[in-house]
Structure formats: C-alpha cells, structure tokens
Amino acid sequence: MTDTPPPRPTPNPDYRVNFFRPRPGYLRQKVRYTWVLLISWAFFTLGFQFLLLLTQDTPEGDSLITETILFGFPLHYWFSGQFLIVWFILLCFLFNLFVDHLTRIHRQRR
C-alpha cells in the first residue's frame, strides 16, 4: 500500500475506470479482491461440473465422484445442492470484510 490516491485538483486528472487496468490505490486493491472472489466463485461452481465431465465413465456422467457418498448424499448432489450455497454465503462474507477493511484504511487517509 505504497500508492497514494491522486491529488484532487490537478490539471490532467486520471478518470480512468477499467476493470483490467484499475487506477493505483483503493480501486486497484478492490479489483484485486474482486478477481480472487470471482475466480473462486467460478472455480467451485463451473469447475466442479468440468471435473464431473473429466472423470465420467459413462455418457450419463457416472464416475467415482458420483458413487462416493458424503453425509448420506451422492457427492455431486451434496456439493451442488448443499455446499455451494454455503460457499456463496462465505464468499459474500469475505468480500464484505475486505471492503470494510479497505474503506477504513482509505477513509482515514483522505
């Protein structure tokens, strides 16, 4: 966090807002968190379906994963039907913690 926000009255201010090239400072840190969360969101949601596809033994998708029983459920039912919702709640929780933290730091600095 060596970056300081750009000074307000400048002759050529930086208005750039770009998710892929965010301005240094608050926005860049926030976008970094957002990327981490987006990747863990996609990895668990869609990645698991790819895993099912990669490991399948039959066209219907039967595999070692679907035959494993966890907490009484076939693993893929437990993962998609129960765990993912918990995972989403956790992601939102973490995001809020991050943003609270960032806001505290940058509000003090202003």
Partner: peptide, 21 residues
Amino acid sequence: GYMAFAYVVGWTGGYVLLLIL
C-alpha cells in the same frame, strides 16, 4: 434430478456477482 441444481446454484450464485461487481 441433477439438472435442477443449475437453477438452485444459478439463483443463489447470481447474488455473489451482484454484490462483488
């Protein structure tokens, strides 16, 4: 069967996108 979880996951995971973006 399992196809229904696309709805369950889609309609909850959408809130994550909404919140963080």
